[in-house]
């Protein structure tokens, strides 16, 4: 019998590379499957409702609090420099460029990523995915493609709504501490912002959404047997997608800088 070739890499590193390779293959299969019919439009709409609409309250509340707290905490520093008038501009740029997309994506990684990981994991364990395949439906297309498409489309929408709510929270914080009108606040915010701030922010949100959907689906679809495996899938879906969000954010900043948009 041929002896198994011993790897020179430590087990942890080898497992990491194997998982990275499998995730890439999984992503490749997504791009292959999305191109060819049948298209699961109804399931995409249903998932978009579940992922987008049902995440709105959580994203909205969090965005509002972040906008409010960021403004309240930044104000004393700006006041000490005599730059209080810059507060709307500073808060606006911070929220639109960075805080809005990243916080929204992290919240969605927690809520949606874990939900997808657990749902698919439990479907796998209870043979529902096999049952779908036996009935002649391509489970990858029906379950995975629809969810990844939905997260990719819905996260940018949630980011834009979250940004708007966050800016409103910032306005209320400024309003509480001093006399500023709604029009003046938003005039100052939009004067400080330009196309180069908004566009990269929206584009990277698509990648955040793709990463959340991809990792959630991959972890759930490859869940090992048993309830422990389902829990592990949900947990690692959140951890890995959160990490990926920061990596994508870092890459987005580099690319934005390369194109001179910062």
């Amino acid at each position: 019998m041929a002896e198994e070739k011993k790897s020179i890499l430590p087990k942890g590193l080898r497992d990491f590379y194997i998982e990275a390779g499998e995730t890439t293959q999984f992503a490749g299969r997504f791009f292959r499957e999305i191109l060819f019919p049948p298209y699961e439009f109804r399931e995409v709409i249903r998932q978009s409702y579940e992922i987008g609409y049902k995440s709105l309250p959580l994203v909205g509340i969090t965005a509002f609090i972040i906008g409010l707290v960021l403004t309240l905490q930044s104000r004393p520093t700006l006041v000490s420099f005599g730059a209080e008038a810059w507060l709307p501009a500073m808060v606006g740029v911070s929220i639109i460029r960075e805080i809005g997309p990243v916080i929204t994506a992290l919240i969605c990684a927690g809520k949606i990523g874990s939900s997808i990981g657990a749902e698919l994991g439990s479907m796998k364990v209870t043979e529902q995915i096999d049952a779908m395949e036996v009935s002649g439906t391509n489970p990858f297309k029906y379950i995975v493609v629809s969810r990844i498409v939905s997260t990719t489309l819905m996260i940018p929408v949630l980011v834009v709504i979250g940004d708007a709510i966050s800016l409103y929270g910032a306005f209320l914080a400024v309003k509480v501490k001093g006399a500023v009108s709604f029009t003046l606040f938003f005039h100052q915010v939009f004067e400080a912002l330009n196309f180069g701030d908004a566009l990269p922010s929206v584009i990277k949100s698509f990648f955040f959404g793709f990463a959340i959907g991809l990792i959630g689906c991959y972890k759930g679809y490859h869940s090992k047997k048993g309830t422990e495996g389902v829990g592990r899938s949900a947990n690692s879906a959140v951890v890995v997608s959160s990490l990926l969000i920061f990596i994508i954010d870092l890459m987005a900043v580099q690319i934005t800088e390369f194109f001179g948009l910062i």
Partner: peptide, 24 residues
């Protein structure tokens, strides 16, 4: 194919479970 665990789709009603096979 009748699965050991029945493998009914949890997120669907009984009617939707039966109709699912008719999709294709």
């Amino acid at each position: 194919f009748v699965f050991q665990s029945s493998a009914l789709y949890d997120s669907m009603t009984v009617r939707e479970n039966l109709e699912f096979a008719l999709r294709r």
